[in-house]
Design a protein around this nucleic acid. Structure first.
Lengths: 221, 221
DNA sequence: CAGCAGTTTGCACGCTGTGAAATAATTGGG
DNA sequence: CCCAATTATTTCACAGCGTGCAAACTGCTG
């Protein structure tokens, strides 16, 4: 019995190859002519699939360009965050969690670099990517809410849930604000990283940006 | 000689009416059936224009739904922000500026409420709006950079520009972070406002959200 | 090999968005 | 009031996106 994954199998390998071919095609073509002058037909021709197959892999042309959504860290890491010490700094813990989450972004080097260079040219793509970030935000918000509830329970275990001062709507809003500030930090990190030469990994940048957020919100002295 | 605007003229009035009719049409139809089941043809029929005319007013179906980008405050307000006291809190000043900016968002009450209710149903529209926020962000970032330069000049007027410690790239990144944090606050305010009953105006919410950002970034004590 | 499940493809179709030219409406001047 | 210039609207044609469907194909399994 294999420890980890069964041998991927021809089917799966082919699937990944096709996916990669499509992404590679859309990125290189976009870099040459600009995305507006690249059609799905062009992409499919270069990637050696039918136009219809393109849409079996990606729901839209944009999706192929943008790539997969970031994806949150492992279940273990999330667990650790939720169960964090109730009197520790939530935002700081968040920085740790998110830095870890983005480490696994480094799957495919070449695609990654290509995408970065294409996005540097067409700034509006950053905006596109933001839209796909919504899922990420929603997940994050729910995790943060969970953490809040855990904190509250740890702090006052004897009090009944309903009796505690946590209005669910207010909890929601608090979690939302943490989420949005965290995403702001990620966006900052991401764009600094995209501007730079790619020397330092994205996850380091995230830590730096979170630290900057703290500096910014201190009134200057 | 009229003080302010010449009489708008028939042409301009009609134009505004059409614009409003289209927005009204797309919003009411979307609320009834969901936006995916509303075509440009439907919208144009209700608004009494040809489908082609629809695209003379809005570049896309989404654009009609989302409405105009927020738009920054008046030139005077921006001037005041840039020339702010160099040792005051930039983020706090920013809160004032943005709160003012969003006051003028309250142009058309009915459209505004409709849009709010449609967006409450289809959460993914929030993501769409984000994409349009990029212009706003860029403008904001430039204004903040200007403020930084003004501050630096006021603080050390004798030093030559080049000799001062402000690496242009670093200035950029700092301004970007301020921008993104500010936008995070606006997004928070906006979504809280959309959730609520619309009693308190958006601009007040912005102030509240900025205050919350400060609270959040203090390590809890 | 035979059958099954998953993949790719071709085809038809509706919808979005744009360019160009014809048509209609508004404005300003005589 | 009517004409000419200007601007807005419409009609038409067309390229591209994205989806449903059914047929052909390919890897998998016994």
């Amino acid at each position: 019995m294999p420890i980890e994954t069964e041998a991927p199998g021809l089917r799966e390998r082919k699937r990944l190859a096709t996916r990669r071919a499509i992404q590679h095609a859309v990125l290189t073509l976009s870099r040459e002519r600009g995305i507006d002058h690249v059609t799905v037909e062009d992409i499919s021709r270069v990637a050696n699939v039918s136009p219809r197959t393109f849409f079996n892999y990606f729901p839209s042309k944009d999706a192929a360009l943008i790539g997969d959504a970031p994806g949150l860290a492992s279940a273990d890491d999330i667990e650790a965050f939720v169960a964090g010490a109730p009197d520790s700094d939530v935002l700081a813990d968040l920085a740790v969690l998110l830095s870890k989450s983005l480490q696994r972004t480094e799957e495919d080097r070449e695609i990654h670099q290509l995408r970065r260079s294409v996005m540097k040219e067409n700034a509006y793509l950053f905006g596109m990517r933001m839209a796909t970030l919504r899922d990420f935000e929603d997940q994050l918000q729910q995790i943060i809410e969970k953490r809040f509830r855990a904190d509250a329970a740890a702090r006052a275990p004897e009090t009944a849930l309903a009796a505690r001062g946590d209005d669910p709507a207010e909890l929601n809003q608090r979690a939302l604000l943490f989420t949005l500030v965290a995403v702001a930090a990620i966006r900052h990190a991401w764009r600094c990283w995209a501007e730079g030469d790619g020397a330092s990994p994205l996850s380091e940048r995230v830590n730096a940006s979170f630290a900057e957020v703290y500096r910014i919100t201190r009134r200057n002295d």
